[in-house]
Design a protein around this nucleic acid. Structure first.
Lengths: 333, 333
DNA sequence: AATAAAAACGATTGCGCAATCGTTTTTATT
DNA sequence: AATAAAAACGATTGCGCAATCGTTTTTATT
């Protein structure tokens, strides 16, 4: 590789001068500068970030640990983060953890070694050990879509979202309302469930335990929930699926069983993934403001990096109702 | 940050010894080793990758330039690549280009500066300038899902896929077959179109120009294509959509127009995205072996890195038919 | 022309590490 | 006990750069 010394020789100047031309850190006579620039161009010189990092103690690199970037919602967040970081002059090191503590540990080690300037974490479940590792990191850390007492975070306000979703069903006249939750350890699912209960309580309705089905936040979970509900003695007239994939599975399975959506069963989802509008019926859901989530997270992180201080701020972003065709008034029989 | 010198002092040995303990590069007396390890542990020492890279001239980092990691197919590839790289001991620097030559140029510059060990490129369109930049890179480059005379590549064999898709329609008895293509500059679309023509020619069928609709590889393109076809005097009995999103849009629009799929119109897609099986009718399509694509690309790249030589190998991976419900024999009227 | 001041650039150090060259200490051999 | 051989470790260099300290050259001033 071409080094600063090669350029200096080619231009007939010292390395100091080359460095100052490259970084524009002191005045260099226009003719000299031109000679240096020409040499840089001719030799195709690119300064080594490793050497720069060693000197300056910054890497302009941010790490991101994600459970899996295949999940469409996560993919969108990764993409949004990448764009925001690029705009701020940072590069992104992508690390998929697969929910595996060994990989999480290994990645944190590696990222420490790489001397990243900051870290974003997008995991719906954060174990004790992982949290301890994150808290001990020597660079600022921002959680996305999750919260922890010791760390900064930017999250969708899922309690509010759960409340809004449920209230919408109530407003349409439903009084027999069930839900398909996520796993018990899924942070945002717990929040949505809290919102669900708050809305029911506010309307003077009871939670019917048989109508609360635990799902896995994937299509199969929605199908299983419908099977379970169909087997029960009484059925709800409306369901709040804790994400769109659950809703998708539920609509499919209900339709196959001749339990028509939304005529016999109303379903509201959560996320507003891209295909939500393409389903039939198109899906009424809660939209997470993913772009804002990404920008806020990057803003917090880059501010902390610039200030050379940790962050502890916690930001919540309100979700928005997206009203389509999968919710109607309950059947009158 | 804790440096090797801090550890040496804490353990009462020289930096040489610490280095040799860390890298296991020469024998160190067990007691000494234990003292060093204890100091490393106590101080939470992690060697600086920047310093190591500077010395050893390798970074264990691979760059990946992708148009956009939001596209579900691309997201899957990014994830697969990340997994394969992790297994091989490399980190991934993710760069979304958004098809913008300025960003492409900027990222290549940055990645050169970072002294990445290798580069993966996943772009469906590669401009002259971008190609020139890639060819001039001082590290091995592997294209994914695209081919160029000067570079190594791993691609789905889309000519073969186009042929298989079309032949399947012919085998079901169709003789009036149209297609919804991708943009003219989309490499894999051109390949699929070649396969489409080969299958028709082999069966003694003509390409009906009015039935060849140019799409954008997104849902809207499929809808537009159906509108155009519906407006025409004669309609095909079967359509080959060049990707699943087009097929999805086409099925939706045809259904809305009372043109039932598959009874009146058979549709075959391409990609086998996750929701393909969830549509109604579930989508018959061609599955790209994404996992193999990713593994092959990483294999080529890491081999080139290990050998310290460029690569020029070109690998094609055969797609597989996935037969579901969106294709049937043509209506008999 | 002599001097001071300003302009322009160069030499050198140190960032953290791997690895080479070298020295000291220990063990085996007679 | 003296010597040779092996074991164990230390001192130093250089990777490529930014930035400090310092020197030389040019320009302005009298």
């Amino acid at each position: 590789m071409v080094t600063i010394t090669d350029v200096a020789k080619a231009a007939g100047v010292s390395v100091s001068t080359v460095s100052h031309v490259v970084n524009d850190t002191r005045f260099v006579k226009p003719e000299t500068r031109a000679r240096v620039m020409a040499a840089i161009e001719r030799l195709d010189y690119t300064p080594s970030s490793s050497a720069q990092s060693l000197k300056k103690n910054v890497t302009h690199t941010v790490g991101m640990i994600v459970t899996s970037s295949t999940n469409p919602y996560f993919a969108e967040v990764v993409s949004g983060v990448e764009a925001a970081l690029y705009a701020a002059g940072f590069n992104l090191m992508l690390c998929n953890s697969g929910r595996d503590i060994d990989r999480q540990r290994s990645y944190i080690r590696t990222l420490k070694g790489k001397r990243i300037d900051g870290l974003l974490v997008l995991e719906s479940v954060i174990s004790e050990e992982f949290l301890a590792l994150l808290t001990a990191c020597p660079f600022p850390v921002v959680l996305m879509d999750n919260e922890a007492p010791t760390l900064a975070s930017v999250v969708d306000d899922s309690e509010q979202g759960g409340y809004l979703a449920t209230r919408y069903l109530i407003e349409q006249g439903h009084r027999e309302i069930g839900c398909i939750t996520g796993p018990a350890d899924h942070y945002q699912s717990r929040q949505r469930y809290r919102g669900f209960r708050r809305a029911l309580a506010e309307a003077g309705l009871e939670v019917e335990p048989a109508w609360v089905q635990a799902g896995n936040l994937e299509v199969g979970g929605g199908e299983a929930a419908i099977q379970a509900l169909a087997a029960g003695p009484r059925r709800p007239t409306a369901l709040f699926a804790f994400n769109d994939l659950l809703a998708l599975g539920a609509i499919g399975e209900a339709t196959r069983r001749g339990w028509r959506v939304p005529e016999a069963l109303s379903i509201i989802g959560y996320d507003d993934i891209e295909i939500a509008r393409l389903l039939s019926p198109s899906l009424t859901t809660l939209r997470q403001q993913t772009d804002r989530l990404c920008r806020e997270a990057c803003r917090l992180l880059t501010a902390a990096i610039a200030a050379k201080e940790p962050v502890f701020e916690q930001v919540r972003i309100a979700p928005q109702r997206v009203i389509r065709d999968s919710v109607r008034e309950p059947p009158t029989d």
